[in-house]
Design a protein around this nucleic acid. Structure first.
Lengths: 261, 261
DNA sequence: GCAACTTTGTGCGTGCGTTCACAAGCGGCT
DNA sequence: AGCCGCTTGTGAACGCACGCACAAAGTTGC
């Protein structure tokens, strides 16, 4: 784009570049980051866009354009050096310093999330647990004390919480969200099936498991209708699906969004 | 569009209409369905597109266009009758008959999912649990016996499983996926952080919790950069965010697909 | 029965995201 | 040193999706 040849690589230039990264690209950058980490552990020195695209299930051209948003770190004729690219991705995605996470709601799902090792290992240590249930407040999960929700404002500030995860029942989610926001938390990941009202400077991402299943159920229904309406043979039906799915390589990438943003 | 006035409401017409529904719309239809269910339980008879849009956090015009994909079930000047619309949504999304779900991987996350009440209540009864861990095989969770993964082909067919959920560690996911596919399962929801290779007639949706957090971390980083580079006052920064976020009403809707989603 | 109001359904413009295709650049080979 | 093959980076076209704005259609009140 209009990147100055050798002007400031750090500083305000980064702001402008980060600000302009499309949301869909950010989601994939996170995917590349994790995949690159695995490739690096396997001893890979360089990766071509075609290889990385195959592993992540993304179109190679799209991958190159995604990476171009954070700068030119590839070598033409060779590919991308894993180590430098990994470092640049971490910096661009804000993973150079760890983000403390607070988890509210230690019921069924929350309990699992608290014990899930995938967060701490990836730079997101869960450093606070909250609930309202007297039977849960006071117990330890993975060595972390469950405290009462009313303590959120104090503890969140004390421990420098930057990300809140809400795993409460739907009706309690908005109140919990308000508490987190009042404590200065600006990023929230919620599993509660309600729309959260937040100020403009707070970012909310919602993961709705029931909706995910319903989307799948829709595809089941469509397939069944296809089979009823399909001309005759089964192979013909399969070809029909391939057409419906569009490009064959986006089947395993979730929308997301959004997302699912 | 080109809907015949009073031609066949059922039959091939449905196939053509369902086939053409955009993926992003399907994700939102599932959202409307759940929200409508709640409104119905609260005794609402009719809902206007503005009301439903406010609750679901969607643009009213977009909502009306979404609903128009499944037919004209609104009354001008009044709104939508909750009951008929609910019924039509259920039929279009394939929820008129329950979909049996198999859950593979009863570790941390899987255990929570097995005990999560949100599935059974929404027409997705979890009717089979699988794992490889000898300590887990044989126990009951929520009254369901955990069986060995090698039994997937037999049991999935016996119990008419149509949806598979994979909550295993990443390395095991592909093998489990292959087993499910061989048992005829065509819809898979996976939490494993790997790209699953499947035939063209199998639908995969992926929920990647670590990626979700990384996306949030990116926004934290962007905010921090903003504050450093921001002119002076904090209110100016807030306004900046509002602009970056685009329309204020899509903050709480996840990309999914982004498909997501 | 008519007029005013309300709400749906949708045509159209706009912007984002994806993909193709190719020029530019880098390494290896002779 | 020069050529050849490979891979990146990106310009450009395409398609999808979003949202505005308005006509069509129904309801309420007089």
């Amino acid at each position: 784009m209009t990147v100055p040849p050798e002007a400031e690589r750090e500083g305000v230039g980064d702001v402008a570049r980060l600000r302009s990264i499309p949301e869909a690209t950010v989601a994939r950058l996170a995917l590349y980051l994790r995949t690159l980490g695995e490739l690096g552990e396997q001893g890979a020195e360089t990766v071509s866009s075609d290889e990385l695209a195959a592993v992540t299930g993304v179109n190679p051209a799209k991958l190159r354009k995604d990476l171009s948003f954070i700068g030119s770190y590839g070598i033409r004729g060779v590919g991308y050096e894993v180590r430098p690219l990994l470092h640049q991705l971490e910096q661009s995605l804000g993973l150079n310093h760890r983000q403390a996470v607070a988890l509210v709601g230690v019921g069924n799902l929350g309990h699992a999330l608290a014990g899930y090792g995938g967060f701490d290992g990836r730079g997101f240590p869960v450093t606070a647990l909250f609930d309202v249930d007297p039977d849960l407040v006071g117990i330890h999960i993975n060595g972390i004390l469950v405290e009462h929700v009313r303590e959120i404002p104090r503890i969140a500030v004390e421990r420098g919480i930057t990300i809140g995860m809400i795993a409460t029942p739907g009706p309690a989610a908005q109140a919990v969200c308000d508490l987190l926001v009042s404590a200065g938390v600006q990023c929230i990941l919620t599993f509660a099936p309600v729309v959260l009202q937040v100020p403009a400077d707070v970012e909310v991402r919602k993961v709705d498991l029931a909706v995910e299943l319903q989307i799948l159920a829709f595809h089941v229904a469509r397939r069944n209708l296809d089979e009823v309406a399909g001309s005759s043979v089964s192979t013909g039906t399969v070809n029909g699906h391939a057409l419906v799915n569009g490009a064959a390589d986006n089947r395993t990438v979730n929308g997301s969004g959004g997302i699912h943003s």
